[in-house]
Computed example of a mutant assay.
Amino acid sequence: MKQNNLSYKMYLVTDLFEGTEEELLAKVEKALEGGVTLVQLREKEADGKEFYERALRLKQLLDRFHVPLIINDRVDIALAVGAFGVHVGQDDLPLKVVRSLVGDMIVGVSVRTVQEAKKAVEDGADYIGVGAVFPTSTKLDAKGITKEELTEITGSVRIPAVAIGGITAGNIEKLNGTGIRGAAVVSAILKSQDPKKAAEELNEKLNIQ
């Protein structure tokens, strides 16, 4: 698979950014300098044309740093811009359908139970996003899972698991020892005055080999 040498350690999600596109790209660039290893473009409000154009610009930036682009939900956008992968939730297109459309592109799926994690593997997922692991302002309806549940989920599958939800420099160390391969971060980087420093601090505190 394409993901052989892929690092999920510092997984930036561009969700609910309130600035301009230029400001977003500038923050992402600083975050990349700080060690972000993967970027997911999540655009819940954008129309197709806007999403496509933003994805193209972001991919051009990421290509300079040799960092993969993951598109949230929109398989068509992922295919159109030649993204590295696509990430879907439990209420999006069925994973088997997504896999049939994208071929060897990596596919991630959001889960919050062992059952959902195992089903994701059966249906062809390359990695899972598990959460919310802490209370989060970006998904107010997200139900939290405990550290014990997170550890149980990561131990139930052989594909990489990425923790998501409310992760900050103040709590990321609580994820050490749970078996995750990375942490998906939104506000802790994008709302920071110094995204490079924020990414460096998060990277330093997350103990993943």
Rank of each mutant, 00 (worst) to 15 (best):
K59V: 00
T14D: 04
G89L: 07
L202S: 05
S137Y: 14
M1W: 04
E45Y: 11
T154M: 13
G85I: 11
I180T: 11
G129M: 12
G19S: 12
K9R: 09
S156D: 05
Q115V: 10
K205H: 10
L25D: 02
L12K: 08
L12W: 07
Y8M: 05
L58Y: 09
K174G: 05
A26P: 03
E116M: 08
L101K: 08
I164W: 07
V97M: 11
T20C: 09
I189Y: 07
I208T: 02
L150V: 12
Q209Y: 09
S110G: 08
A83P: 00
L206P: 03
Q209H: 12
Q60D: 13
V162D: 11
L58A: 13
I172P: 08
K49P: 01
L25A: 02
T14V: 15
A132N: 07
L16S: 12
L93F: 10
I77L: 02
A80Y: 00
S100K: 12
V109Y: 03
D76E: 13
E122I: 04
E29S: 12
Y11K: 04
K139L: 05
E18I: 09
V36G: 02
E152A: 14
T37G: 04
V97P: 01
D194P: 05
V67R: 08
V133H: 08
M1K: 09
V39C: 03
L6E: 06
A78D: 01
T14N: 02
A184C: 15
T178D: 08
G82C: 04
V162A: 10
E33H: 14
V109I: 12
E18S: 13
V13F: 06
A163R: 15
V133K: 09
Y52A: 03
D194R: 10
G82S: 06
N72Q: 01
I71Q: 00
V157K: 05
I159Q: 11
L79W: 02
L202F: 05
R112W: 03
G129S: 14
K191G: 15
Q115I: 08
F51H: 14
A120Y: 02
I106R: 00
G108W: 02
A120H: 03
A117T: 07
I180C: 11
D15V: 13
I77S: 01
A55M: 03
T146F: 12
G35Y: 06
I180H: 11
A169K: 15
Q115T: 10
T20Q: 08
A169G: 15
F134P: 11
D92R: 02
L6A: 07
L175K: 03
T168D: 09
N207R: 15
T37K: 04
Q209C: 08
V111E: 15
A31K: 07
L150W: 13
V75A: 04
E116K: 07
A55S: 13
A80R: 00
G182P: 01
E21A: 12
V102N: 01
K147E: 05
K118D: 08
S100P: 03
